[in-house]
Design a binder for these strands. Structure first.
Length: 271
DNA sequence: AGCGTCACCCGGACGC
DNA sequence: TGCGTCCGGGTGACGC
């Protein structure tokens, strides 16, 4: 599932499209384009790509007039292919580019979304801070944790809390910070808050450096899978202490942790 | 407002 | 082999 490091990798690779101009677009699955499937082609035609960036888990194309934002959700991919190459049944949106190529949004599970808007804040407005930027400091995290009584794991997945973490990097960050996923967020000591801050930064920076986590079924680049300590490793020994990694459900999400390194909160969830 | 749950989807894994 | 069923994942809608 593309999270911040995977989306960052896509954005860097797609930067080669800078300067290219869209000629139009065809939409196979209308719900992929909440801003209007019929309007997409005519509106994007003639617009040149000025920059390719990332915000949270969105890939952000700055165009000459509008902004094109793509969320890959679980299984989405963006591909640049020659127009003569046949599309397959899972290509939901196909953009025509100058030069005989197409930008293709491949999404078997139809979860992903494509937005064409005048102001990117229409889409990214609710997102929390960028965890790898300088503006995200330990003090910012501390303030945002204040008064939050929910479980740490759920909070890390909340994109309005901090943008970019998904199931992989949330579990990895909590393990690195030695914090149990069920801890109530507002019960962290100052030292625990500092550990969580550093862990979030470290796992994401490492993921970016490794060009993402290859999970075969969701994303097939990168080497960060070799660096994972707990994610999808239930039953295997914790790399720190050797205790078997456990898997529980937190808010319907598979959650992996070491019961030794990440001691459970007292009864009732408070910590 | 914050928090938890459900719906959206379908490929793949599993059971029969 | 083929069919039916379940699961998972990020997010937005919804209810409390």
């Amino acid at each position: 599932m593309p999270e911040l490091p995977e989306v960052e990798t896509y954005a860097r690779q797609l930067a080669v499209l800078k300067g290219r101009t869209f000629l139009g677009a065809q939409v196979d699955w209308a719900r992929s384009v909440p801003t209007g499937a019929e309007a997409l082609g005519p509106r994007i035609a003639g617009q040149t790509i000025l920059a390719v960036q990332r915000r949270g888990k969105y890939i952000v194309f700055q165009l000459s007039d509008d902004w094109l934002l793509v969320h890959l959700k679980m299984t989405g991919e963006l591909q640049v292919q020659p127009a003569r190459e046949p599309v397959d049944i899972h290509h939901r949106v196909v953009f025509d580019l100058d030069g005989g190529e197409q930008l293709r949004f491949h999404d078997p599970r139809k979860f992903g979304r494509v937005y064409l808007v005048a102001d990117p804040a229409e889409v990214t407005g609710p997102l929390g801070p960028e965890p790898l930027e300088e503006l995200f400091t330990p003090e910012v995290l501390q303030v945002r944790l204040h008064g939050r009584r929910g479980r740490l794991k759920s909070l890390l997945l909340d994109q309005t809390f901090v943008a970019g973490l998904g199931n992989i990097y949330a579990d990895e960050a909590l393990h690195r910070a030695r914090l149990h996923p069920l801890r109530a967020a507002d019960t962290l000591t100052a030292d625990e808050q500092a550990r969580l801050y550093q862990a979030i930064r470290d796992v994401l920076a490492q993921g970016v450096a490794n060009r993402g986590t290859n999970l075969d079924w969701a994303y097939t680049q990168g080497t960060n899978q070799d660096a994972l300590r707990v994610f999808h490793r239930h039953g295997q020994p914790c790399p720190t202490c050797g205790t078997p990694v456990e898997r529980i459900l937190v808010g319907q999400r598979g959650t992996h942790f070491c019961p030794q390194c990440q001691p459970p909160p007292p009864r009732g969830g408070a910590g």
